[in-house]
């Protein structure tokens, strides 16, 4: 993965695989504290203790189509390379929270990348999921939620040219944030 926005896309796809219908993505950037924090909270089926213990093992996966599960271990590696770490809180039946921290100024911290494109892909590709996104950067806040946006659509789909327009208008606000 080249940047953090791709890791976010990957981890949220896991949430959706786990049956999540509500996903919260929170990013917190604080230059004074030299900290970058990414948190992904879902209401998917969660993990029991045994699964949770193995979740970061690249040779463990719940999938049946292949034998490795690299997503979370790659994300943890990215955090550790930048003097941070990744933690998972999860409870079977209740959902999962993934939290990754990074030293903001660390030379090996991957760039954020194209967050707009990640949100675009997630929202368009998963119309049944409610996404909320909060980005707090040096005291400034960007907030969005797909429930409100959906009301502006003719059908509940973002994957029509009209839906894309509505979404683009909203996500354009992230430009230069």
């Amino acid at each position: 993965m080249e940047d953090l926005s791709l890791h976010i896309l990957d981890v949220v796809e896991n949430s959706i695989d786990a049956g999540a219908r509500k996903v919260e993505i929170k990013i917190y950037e604080d230059l004074k504290k030299d900290l970058l924090e990414i948190e992904i909270i879902d209401d998917g089926k969660g993990m029991d203790e045994g699964t949770l213990e193995k979740a970061l093992d690249p040779f463990f996966t719940t999938k049946t189509v292949r034998k490795v599960g690299l997503g979370l271990s790659l994300f943890r590696e990215a955090a550790r390379m930048a003097n941070g770490d990744l933690s998972i809180r999860s409870e079977a039946g209740r959902g999962t929270t993934i939290r990754a921290t990074f030293q903001h100024s660390h030379i090996d911290r991957k760039p954020m990348g194209d967050l707009e494109e990640t949100l675009f892909t997630l929202i368009i590709g998963n119309p049944e999921v409610v996404f909320s996104f909060a980005y707090l950067k040096n005291g400034k806040m960007f907030n969005m939620n797909t429930t409100g946006l959906k009301k502006k659509l003719p059908g509940n789909y973002f994957s029509s040219s009209e839906g894309i327009k509505v979404l683009r208008n909203e996500l354009n606000k992230l430009d230069g944030f």
Binding site: L6, L9, E13, I16, D17, K63, V65, R66, D114, E117, T118, F120, T121, L122, I124, G125, N126, P127, Y157, S159, S160, S161, E162, I164, K165
Partner: peptide, 27 residues
């Protein structure tokens, strides 16, 4: 993600309203 973007561009360019774009996991 770039593939998704390319498809979104086509939907927008053609004013297409009845194609469903979706995601799945690894096959």
């Amino acid at each position: 993600r770039n593939i998704m973007r390319a498809l979104v561009e086509e939907v927008e360019r053609g004013g297409v309203e009845d194609v469903i774009l979706t995601n799945s996991g690894c096959a």
